[in-house]
Simulated scan of single mutants.
Amino acid sequence: MAGLKTIIVLSFILAIGFLLVILSSALFKNYLTLLVVATYVIAPVPNWLCGKAQSQDDFMDSGSSSIVELGRFMTGFLVVMGIALPVVLAHCDQITIPAMAMSIIGGLLIYGTIISFTMFFREQEEF
C-alpha cells in the first residue's frame, strides 16, 4: 500500500527531472532540448487510446489484441525518441554535450517516475 511519502518522493524526483530538462536549455541558451518535453507529454497517449479501443469481453480473454500491441509499440518508439533526440541534436552540433547529458538524465528521471507511479498505485484486480 503506497502512501503519502511515496507520492511526495515521486513528485520530488519528477520535479528534479523537469528541472534538469529546463536547465539544459536555459543554461546553454539553446531551447531545442525542450522538444524532448513534447515526447514526455505524447508518449502515454497511444497506449491510452489503444487500450480504450480494445474490446473488453468478460467471458473470453484472447490475450492481447493487435491494437494494444500497436499502442505499446508507438509508446516505446516515443520513449526511445525522447532519449535519442538529444543525442542526435548533439551529434549535429545543435546543442552541447552537457546539455545533452542533462536532458537525457532528466528524461530518465521522468520516465522512471512515471513507471514507479504506475507500479505503486496499480489497482488490484479481484477474481
Rank of each mutant, 00 (worst) to 15 (best):
residue 84 A to L: 05
residue 72 R to G: 04
residue 92 C to W: 13
residue 44 P to L: 02
residue 80 V to N: 02
residue 101 A to W: 11
residue 3 G to N: 14
residue 70 L to T: 04
residue 35 L to K: 08
residue 68 V to Y: 09
residue 93 D to T: 13
residue 38 A to G: 14
residue 45 V to D: 00
residue 77 F to I: 09
residue 45 V to H: 02
residue 35 L to Q: 10
residue 112 G to K: 10
residue 113 T to M: 08
residue 63 G to I: 02
residue 80 V to Y: 04
residue 79 V to M: 11
residue 86 P to I: 06
residue 110 I to P: 01
residue 76 G to H: 02
residue 48 W to G: 08
residue 10 L to E: 07
residue 69 E to M: 12
residue 38 A to I: 14
residue 83 I to W: 04
residue 113 T to K: 08
residue 11 S to A: 15
residue 23 L to F: 12
residue 16 I to L: 12
residue 69 E to A: 10
residue 92 C to D: 14
residue 126 E to F: 13
residue 91 H to R: 14
residue 16 I to C: 08
residue 56 Q to N: 13
residue 6 T to I: 15
residue 43 A to I: 06
residue 88 V to P: 02
residue 65 S to V: 02
residue 7 I to H: 14
residue 70 L to C: 03
residue 81 M to A: 14
residue 2 A to N: 06
residue 30 N to M: 05
residue 105 I to G: 03
residue 57 D to M: 11
residue 56 Q to M: 14
residue 117 F to M: 12
residue 35 L to W: 05
residue 5 K to R: 13
residue 58 D to S: 13
residue 20 L to T: 02
residue 105 I to A: 09
residue 99 A to I: 03
residue 36 V to G: 00
residue 80 V to K: 03
residue 105 I to D: 00
residue 89 L to H: 08
residue 84 A to H: 05
residue 75 T to H: 03
residue 24 S to W: 12
residue 22 I to L: 10
residue 56 Q to H: 15
residue 86 P to K: 07
residue 115 I to T: 11
residue 100 M to L: 08
residue 87 V to A: 12
residue 57 D to Y: 01
residue 87 V to G: 06
residue 31 Y to P: 00
residue 107 G to R: 06
residue 49 L to S: 00
residue 14 L to D: 05
residue 123 E to K: 15
residue 121 F to D: 00
residue 93 D to K: 14
residue 47 N to K: 12
residue 80 V to S: 02
residue 105 I to P: 00
residue 31 Y to D: 05
residue 7 I to V: 15
residue 62 S to G: 12
residue 49 L to N: 00
residue 121 F to W: 08
residue 31 Y to I: 08
residue 117 F to G: 00
residue 18 F to H: 04
residue 95 I to S: 06
residue 91 H to W: 15
residue 48 W to D: 09
residue 118 T to W: 15
residue 111 Y to I: 06
residue 36 V to R: 03
residue 110 I to Q: 02
residue 102 M to K: 06
residue 6 T to G: 11
residue 30 N to K: 10
residue 127 F to P: 05
residue 96 T to K: 07
residue 20 L to C: 03
residue 11 S to T: 15
residue 34 L to S: 11
residue 54 Q to I: 02
residue 27 L to G: 04
residue 29 K to A: 14
residue 84 A to E: 06
residue 103 S to Y: 01
residue 108 L to R: 04
residue 115 I to E: 13
residue 78 L to W: 02
residue 30 N to S: 11
residue 14 L to E: 01
residue 58 D to N: 13
residue 40 Y to I: 07
residue 78 L to F: 04
residue 10 L to R: 12
residue 103 S to T: 10
residue 54 Q to P: 03
residue 89 L to A: 07
residue 37 V to F: 08
residue 18 F to V: 09
residue 84 A to F: 12
residue 66 S to N: 12
residue 85 L to D: 06
residue 85 L to K: 00
residue 107 G to P: 07
residue 97 I to E: 13
residue 14 L to A: 10
residue 16 I to K: 01
residue 123 E to A: 14
residue 33 T to C: 07
residue 11 S to R: 13
residue 62 S to N: 14
residue 101 A to V: 14
residue 84 A to V: 09
residue 88 V to S: 12
residue 65 S to A: 13
residue 110 I to L: 01
residue 93 D to S: 15
